[in-house]
Design a protein around this nucleic acid. Sequence first.
DNA 1: ATCCGCGCTATTGTATACAAAATGGGGCGC
DNA 2: GCGCCCCATTTTGTATACAATAGCGCGGAT
Lengths: 211, 211
Amino acid sequence: MSSAADRAYAEIRGLILAGDAMPGTPLREEALAGIVGVSRTPVRDALRRLEGELYAVRTPGGRLVVADWDADDVAEMFALRAMLEGHAASRAAARMTPQVLAALRDSNGAIEAAVAAPVPDIGIFLRENRRFHDITIAAAGSARLANMLSALVEQPVVRRTAARYDRSDLMRSVVEHGQLVQAFAAGDAEWARATMAAHIRRAFHAFRTAI
Amino acid sequence: MSSAADRAYAEIRGLILAGDAMPGTPLREEALAGIVGVSRTPVRDALRRLEGELYAVRTPGGRLVVADWDADDVAEMFALRAMLEGHAASRAAARMTPQVLAALRDSNGAIEAAVAAPVPDIGIFLRENRRFHDITIAAAGSARLANMLSALVEQPVVRRTAARYDRSDLMRSVVEHGQLVQAFAAGDAEWARATMAAHIRRAFHAFRTAI
DNA sequence: ATCCGCGCTATTGTATACAAAATGGGGCGC
DNA sequence: GCGCCCCATTTTGTATACAATAGCGCGGAT
């Protein structure tokens, strides 16, 4: 895979998500090339991807600036994610295999262990939470769906939310994942869909109160 | 906007959708550059966009080939479109204005006229149908939603379906659009969502029987 | 005869040079 | 003083040259 373009993508995306590049900040190719340490060509590739994922928007004159995520857009992202990931859960339930089910149980077990520790390990929680959802999306068996969701799963948003969770909040995630596993085990697509949608909408409201 | 890159995008996309480039056909940058009459640089831009929209997929070695749309993927596209465009209709209903409503009525009036003509004009039908849906998506006021739907609205798929419509099929679209307008006029988001979802799922089955 | 390894070729990735276009500022006219 | 137009500078778009890498075929050994 293309190393320079990928590094540029990751680094510029990082700048945006970390808040180092505020909304409205112009994304100048040459300046970014200097920062990343590559030429303009891979930077352009990265910017085009970021534009496609709406991390950047184009001014009338063709210049790119960091996109502004207002509260409405965040709400819309959660709504879309609830819909699409609910759909993914539905498909996954219909295609569930013992191996995938075991992987999901393993992931949720790791989350539970991290939460049950004397000092809950947020790092493990985030990593395994991500893995749980990735496994579900992969189990849905739709490349298109996975592609759409990839632009929607904002790890930093999840992180900021999780950082403020107390133990009972974290445990609620474990319980909800457990409910999802039950729905998957039963092969009940609608149960899985509804549970996933509820899980994500709860996360949305946790996020809202967190900020 | 960038003329060469856009022409390359449109032309390569056209090759894929027209069936001139069958699934699995390698998309070689230099060859495409020759066809379009530009250099590799804008062709690369176009290919990256097409890759993001899953018109092309990447082989393990980094080469791009035309993606294969099997029946399952088409079904999934319609399912996603029903979900997302239903959501768009819901949002549009909540944000409806007299101006947008008038534009939608105007569009559907044009469709009805085209269908009612002694020889139904499929060209006008397709153009105005597209406009009707575009107005709805724009009225939803979500750039992210519009962005996702743009990769999902396969005009050629619609075209192949519409080409086999008889007058009663075409008229059914007019009726369904009329129902949507009613839901919009009432500002009933859930009515609009359900009507749009039903409209698209009917189109899906029309497509299935057409092929 | 088949399988492995080597090297060649085709293809993509990256850098740079050049062209075109847009923004911003300064000066001119009203 | 205000507004507008034009030019300089900055920034993006495109082309080309070069580098790296994957694929593939050939030849040899077992």
